[in-house]
């Protein structure tokens, strides 16, 4: 264990802990923007710089491991100036389109600018000529809103192991671009870690403000993995899917289906009752009617042609338990081994 002090308070943490993590253990808040709990520290925003007694240079708390006996000062006039300058420089060209930004109300940049009370920016630079070089039918990139914190780039590489996006160019003209469009699976990991409205979901634009939706925790129905997600519900309509960092077996990650494939829930084309074909036409029926019919027909077919005339095909969208029960039903009740699973096709 390493012992240090932060703002005079003694903290003991394991060797290799960063100053930021040590401060959080001690309940001391150090502001961050690019830091994300699931990613290796990036160190692009410089909001978390702190002073250390006897060390000339301010150090970034997120990337600096603790050392025995150091005395960290989490805030000072100097640190405050650096943090303010970091935010002010972002604001030099950040559009103030918060009223129509999907992220308005849950934007980390908005929160920090509010916290630091920045009401004017004396710095100027022409708007960089950035093109929207990254977008899929499901993900929209707003280059003007991008602060280049690199969370998206890091998440694509570290969490998904894909590395489809990268920073290109130099200096002020650098921007986030797709380096390999083939690799991108539109999983949306990038937009889930974006602290601002630079990456948004194309499907739910203008459908509801973040603070107005009800977030209903549930399990994804697309496969047996059991990913935890939150349906964003407004007026009994699902308008988006979000996750909580680190929650569930998926730790907050989703695939393209889980994150974007929610529109079927409220689709007009969705079947809500069983249909029975009578005289060549499907007619709505009750569950009891339908199940009785199926049971009768199974019984009759089994009687006439034997149980092997019946086969069962189960779905990857069922859980393991449901699939187990299904094969049990086919073998024990129908009496056939003709059972398979769509994931094997």
């Amino acid at each position: 264990m390493v012992t240090l002090t932060i703002d005079g308070k003694e903290v003991k943490v394991p060797q290799g802990t960063t100053i930021l993590a040590a401060a959080r253990t001690a309940g001391i808040r150090i502001p961050t923007l690019c830091y994300h709990g699931r990613l290796d520290p990036i160190g692009s925003c410089r909001m978390c710089v702190v002073e250390i007694e006897g060390i000339a240079h301010p150090m970034a708390a997120c990337t600096t491991p603790v050392e025995e006996g150091i005395a960290v000062i989490s805030n000072s006039d100097r640190i405050q100036r650096i943090r303010e300058d970091s935010l002010k420089l972002i604001l030099v060209n950040h559009p103030l389109d918060c009223p129509i930004c999907d992220k308005g109300g849950e934007c980390l940049l908005q929160d920090l600018v509010y916290e630091f009370g920045i009401d004017k920016v004396e710095y100027q630079a022409p708007k960089p000529a950035r093109e929207s070089l990254y977008a899929t039918p499901l993900i929209r990139y707003w280059p003007d809103r991008c602060v280049m914190c690199l969370r998206c780039v890091t998440a694509c590489r570290e969490i998904k192991g894909i590395g489809a996006i990268e920073i290109k160019g130099e200096g002020y003209g650098s921007q986030v671009v797709v380096i390999d469009a083939e690799k991108c699976q539109s999983c949306g990991e990038c937009l889930s870690v974006c602290p601002t409205g630079a990456l948004t979901e194309n499907l739910s634009r203008f459908k509801g403000r973040p603070w107005l939706v009800e977030r209903v925790p549930t399990t994804c129905t697309y496969c047996g993995c059991g990913c935890q997600l939150e349906l964003n519900v407004q007026n009994n309509r699902v308008i988006g899917v979000t996750t909580q960092e680190g929650k569930g077996v998926n730790l907050g990650s989703l695939c393209v289906k889980g994150r974007f494939g929610y529109e079927f829930i409220g689709s007009d084309e969705r079947l809500t009752t069983p249909l029975i074909k009578k005289d060549g036409e499907f007619k709505e029926a009750s569950w009891e009617e339908a199940l009785t019919l199926v049971a009768e027909r199974f019984g009759a077919i089994k009687e006439e042609f034997g149980p092997d005339a019946i086969g069962g095909l189960s779905s990857a969208r069922c859980t393991n338990e449901e699939n187990y029960l299904f094969q049990k039903f086919m073998r024990g009740v129908i009496g056939t081994n003709n059972v398979d699973h769509c994931a094997r096709l």
């Binding site: 692009s44 710095y123 100027q124 630079a125 280049m148 200096g171 002020y172």
Partner: peptide, 19 residues
């Protein structure tokens, strides 16, 4: 011109200074 763009202060700040 040589700033890598990977931190806020250098990327934008040196542009403000140069301009």
């Amino acid at each position: 011109e040589k700033s890598c763009g990977k931190c806020f202060l250098c990327r934008i700040g040196t542009k403000v200074i140069a301009d």
